[in-house]
Deep mutational scan, measured.
Amino acid sequence: MRKLSDELLIESYFKATEMNLNRDFIELIENEIKRRSLGHIISV
Rank of each mutant, 00 (worst) to 15 (best):
M1G: 03
M1R: 01
M1Y: 13
M1A: 04
R2F: 14
R2A: 15
R2V: 14
R2K: 15
R2E: 15
R2H: 15
R2C: 08
K3H: 15
K3P: 03
K3T: 14
K3F: 14
K3L: 15
K3E: 15
K3Y: 13
K3C: 07
L4P: 01
L4C: 04
L4N: 02
L4G: 01
L4I: 06
L4S: 03
S5V: 03
S5G: 04
S5L: 04
S5M: 04
S5Q: 03
S5T: 12
S5A: 05
S5E: 04
S5D: 05
D6M: 04
D6R: 03
D6G: 02
D6Q: 04
D6C: 04
D6F: 05
D6H: 04
E7S: 10
E7H: 11
E7Y: 09
E7W: 11
E7I: 10
E7F: 10
L8C: 09
L8G: 08
L8T: 09
L8V: 14
L9E: 00
L9M: 02
L9D: 01
L9I: 04
L9W: 01
L9H: 00
I10P: 00
I10K: 03
I10W: 05
I10F: 05
I10D: 00
I10N: 01
I10R: 02
I10G: 01
I10H: 02
I10Y: 03
E11V: 10
E11D: 10
E11W: 10
E11S: 09
E11Q: 13
S12F: 15
S12D: 03
S12V: 15
S12Y: 15
S12G: 05
Y13S: 01
Y13Q: 00
Y13L: 03
Y13C: 01
Y13H: 02
Y13I: 02
Y13V: 01
F14R: 10
F14S: 04
F14W: 13
F14D: 02
F14A: 05
F14M: 10
F14I: 10
K15P: 00
K15N: 11
K15G: 05
K15W: 12
K15V: 09
K15I: 09
K15F: 11
K15E: 06
A16T: 03
A16F: 07
A16V: 04
A16C: 05
T17Q: 14
T17L: 14
T17E: 07
T17G: 06
T17A: 09
T17P: 03
T17F: 12
T17R: 13
T17K: 15
T17N: 10
E18A: 14
E18M: 11
E18Y: 09
E18T: 10
E18D: 07
E18W: 07
M19N: 11
M19V: 06
M19L: 14
M19C: 09
M19A: 12
N20T: 06
N20K: 11
N20L: 08
N20M: 10
L21Q: 10
L21S: 11
L21W: 11
L21D: 07
L21I: 08
L21R: 08
L21E: 10
L21H: 07
L21M: 14
N22G: 11
N22R: 09
N22P: 14
N22A: 13
N22S: 13
N22K: 08
N22T: 10
R23V: 07
R23M: 09
R23C: 06
R23N: 08
R23Y: 08
R23E: 07
R23G: 07
R23S: 10
D24A: 10
D24P: 07
D24K: 06
D24I: 08
D24C: 09
D24R: 06
D24H: 08
F25P: 01
F25C: 13
F25H: 08
F25Q: 09
F25T: 08
I26K: 03
I26S: 02
I26N: 01
I26V: 07
E27F: 09
E27V: 11
E27N: 11
E27L: 12
E27H: 09
E27Y: 08
E27M: 14
E27G: 07
L28N: 05
L28E: 08
L28W: 04
L28D: 05
L28P: 03
L28G: 04
L28V: 10
I29P: 00
I29K: 00
E30D: 03
E30P: 00
E30R: 14
E30Y: 13
E30I: 15
N31E: 13
N31V: 09
N31H: 11
N31D: 12
N31Y: 10
N31L: 13
N31Q: 14
E32R: 00
E32V: 02
E32G: 01
E32Y: 02
E32D: 01
I33R: 00
I33D: 00
I33P: 00
I33F: 04
I33T: 01
I33S: 00
I33W: 01
K34C: 07
K34I: 12
K34Y: 12
K34T: 08
K34G: 04
R35F: 07
R35Q: 05
R35P: 00
R35L: 06
R35V: 04
R35N: 05
R35C: 03
R35A: 06
R36I: 01
R36G: 01
R36W: 02
R36H: 01
S37A: 12
S37V: 07
S37I: 05
S37Y: 10
S37R: 13
S37L: 13
S37T: 07
L38H: 02
L38W: 03
L38I: 06
L38P: 01
L38Y: 03
L38V: 02
L38K: 03
L38T: 02
L38E: 02
G39W: 15
G39S: 13
G39A: 11
G39I: 12
G39K: 06
G39V: 10
H40G: 08
H40V: 08
H40Y: 12
H40C: 08
H40P: 06
I41Q: 07
I41G: 03
I41Y: 12
I41W: 11
I41V: 11
I41S: 06
I41C: 09
I41T: 07
I42Q: 04
I42D: 03
I42H: 04
I42G: 04
I42Y: 02
S43W: 10
S43F: 11
S43I: 13
S43Y: 09
S43T: 13
S43N: 13
V44S: 13
V44G: 14
V44P: 13
V44Y: 10
V44R: 08
V44I: 13
